[in-house]
Design a protein around this nucleic acid. Structure first.
Length: 274
DNA sequence: CTCCTATCCTGCGAGC
DNA sequence: TGCTCGCAGGATAGGA
């Protein structure tokens, strides 16, 4: 579900919900793990802490408190929502796994059917494990033609696989990889190491443009994505190629192709992308 | 190092 | 209608 635009929109919604810097009354863990076991004791230590902000790094959400920080990754199907006046003993909805009761009357609820998500505290060890090897933020100045080109030079895989590698650039997932390559006019199967610096520069611009436009549209809602305030995104109606197999290319009207690259479906226009 | 596969899970739609 | 199968936004471990 969530790639950079969706996580960014969730972050902004959480900021609205948490803008009065509420205290955590209780961390309610409704099971013992998602992809990894919850660090129960360390999370419980943060009960009573004041949440001072929310940040995004790559596809991670980072919750800042005055007693340490914790992070969340939505995996494929994770979501945060808030409910007002929820009682501690009230029964959770299907696939609600974590509830954070706040002293401002709202409760943050993490729901995740497939449970590929992550909830972890942020300390030196988890920073190293989760964040240390992440590449540049695509919307930051540091992400340039030369930076991308250099990290592609030793990569034998296709360019689409390469830009989904979070050590090359963060935040680009299966949807925005196909979309970006369409706008850059680059075939997804092109060997990453063969891309010229100039074409890498075009790809940088395409990635930035697509992600920025998607954020402006509230992200993409494929089936179940909602932001923290319950609203769907609308960028899915503007996909150029993703999930548009056999439909006419908006530029040249030739049918969009679909293939499978490293187990992920890939969409492109064989006329517009070389 | 890099590359490649399998795997973690549930839900849904296509096809029979 | 009801069943099975394949596929879905991500990331990682483990072996080559």
């Amino acid at each position: 579900m969530p790639e950079l635009p969706e996580v960014e929109i969730v972050k902004r919604g959480l900021e609205n919900i948490l803008n009065d810097k509420p205290r955590i009354l209780e961390f309610q863990l409704l099971r013992e793990n998602l992809r990894d076991p919850f660090p129960v004791a360390e999370l419980k230590k943060m009960e009573g802490a004041r949440i001072t902000g929310v940040q995004r790094r790559a596809k991670y959400l980072i919750f800042l408190t005055d007693r340490g920080n914790f992070l969340s990754h939505l995996g494929m199907t994770g979501s945060w929502r808030s409910e007002a006046d929820l009682r501690l003993g009230s029964s959770p909805r299907l696939h609600d796994h974590v509830r954070i009761f706040l002293n401002n009357g709202s409760t943050l609820i993490y729901n995740d059917p497939r449970r590929f998500g992550i909830l972890d505290v942020l300390n030196a060890a988890t920073e190293k494990k989760r964040l240390a090897r992440l590449g540049p933020e695509p919307l930051a100045k540091e992400f340039s033609a030369v930076v991308l080109w250099k990290s592609l030079r030793n990569k034998n895989c296709g360019i689409k696989t390469a830009i989904m590698d979070q050590s090359v650039v963060v935040g680009v997932g299966n949807i925005y990889a196909s979309e970006s390559l369409f706008y850059a006019g680059i075939k997804p199967h092109t060997r990453a190491s063969r891309l010229s610096c100039a074409r890498a520069g075009g790809l940088v611009q395409a990635i930035q443009s697509v992600l920025t436009k998607s954020i402006a549209a509230g992200g993409s809602t494929i089936s179940d994505y909602r932001n923290a305030e319950g609203n769907a995104g609308s960028f899915q109606s503007r996909f150029a190629v993703y999930d548009r197999a056999d439909q006419p290319c908006a530029k040249c009207t030739k049918p969009i192709k679909k293939g499978v690259t490293v187990g992920r479906s890939t969409f492109w226009c064989s006329a517009c992308q070389r």
